[in-house]
């Protein structure tokens, strides 16, 4: 409107804004990926102190946290941190419990057909499923638990494997949401259907996870998680929440606004 000269020109002169934004996004992601590994080494809880020097609120809470947990394992803040941390920590724990690992493996084997039945495209699901099962098999086949954990750590830091683990867990989460959509639809804001929500917020990589993702992921893998919240809130202690409520959590995660890391009691 009102810009007659522009409208009458022969060639459209708009700059491709989408590509500029994407280019900037990629630059930021590159900087993060060069400085933080996908899944880091185990560190003492006290290592958090240096991030919050002079911040009394957080220092107080770190003290509380260290009375409950000994170690933290950081993950890369790339929007996939919940899925990556949850998947890594879950498998790491299962490697200590062969029977439970085998049950988990069996459940994973059957998951592809369930997704295809829900309407996921066989061709693309298979690609992620194959890698997911390859990782489970490679760590599961090792009889020495320490070797298995080292392999798990190695694979989760190989971008190709690690990201495929995340994608497949995102697909399983999406499948769970769609399977129980009557239940989950109440938690979705706006006019979106559960399927829309899954396409926009669950399946795409780098999309951050909310409670609804966590609830559905836990239901899909049948594996409970305790999330410990540490933020600038008034209370002096960290707050805990178990998903699903009342479970005995296998995985413990630390949540700081916008990011999940793994905790070890």
């Amino acid at each position: 409107m009102g810009d007659e000269s522009k409208n009458s020109s022969e060639e459209p002169s708009q700059v491709n804004q989408d590509e500029l934004i994407l280019a900037q996004q990629r630059q930021i992601e590159k900087e993060i990926s060069e400085s933080i590994p996908l899944v880091g080494e185990m560190e003492p809880i006290s290592s958090l102190n240096s991030e919050y020097a002079n911040d009394e609120v957080y220092l107080e809470k770190i003290k509380d946290l260290s009375s409950k947990y000994k170690h933290i394992r950081r993950t890369r803040p790339d929007g996939n941190c919940f899925f990556r941390a949850y998947s890594y920590a879950g498998l790491e724990r299962l490697l200590d419990k062969k029977d439970e690992f085998n049950a988990f493996y069996k459940q994973a084997e059957e998951s592809k057909d369930a997704l295809v039945q829900l309407g996921f495209q066989q061709f693309t699901v298979e690609d992620f499923y194959d890698i997911y099962m390859e990782v489970l098999k490679r760590v599961g086949d090792l009889t020495d638990v320490d070797d298995a954990k080292k392999t798990l750590h190695f694979l989760f830091n190989e971008q190709g494997y690690s990201d495929y683990m995340v994608v497949y867990l995102r697909l399983l989460t999406s499948g769970q949401l769609q399977k129980d959509q009557d239940f989950y639809s109440c938690f979705i804001e706006g006019d979106r259907t559960v399927a829309d929500f899954c396409h926009q917020e669950v399946e795409p990589m780098y999309k951050e996870s909310d409670h609804i993702h966590i609830i559905a992921a836990c239901a899909a893998l049948n594996m409970g998680v305790r999330v410990v919240y540490m933020d600038r809130g008034n209370n002096k202690s960290v707050t805990e929440h178990d998903f699903p409520e009342g479970c005995t959590p296998l995985v413990h995660l630390l949540y700081r606004p916008g990011h999940y890391d793994i905790l070890y009691p």
Binding site: D18, F120, T124, V125, V167, E203, P204
Partner: peptide, 10 residues
């Protein structure tokens, strides 16, 4: 091709 990309697209 931008913000609603999903790895399930080919």
């Amino acid at each position: 091709l931008q913000n609603r990309w999903s790895p399930t697209y080919d």
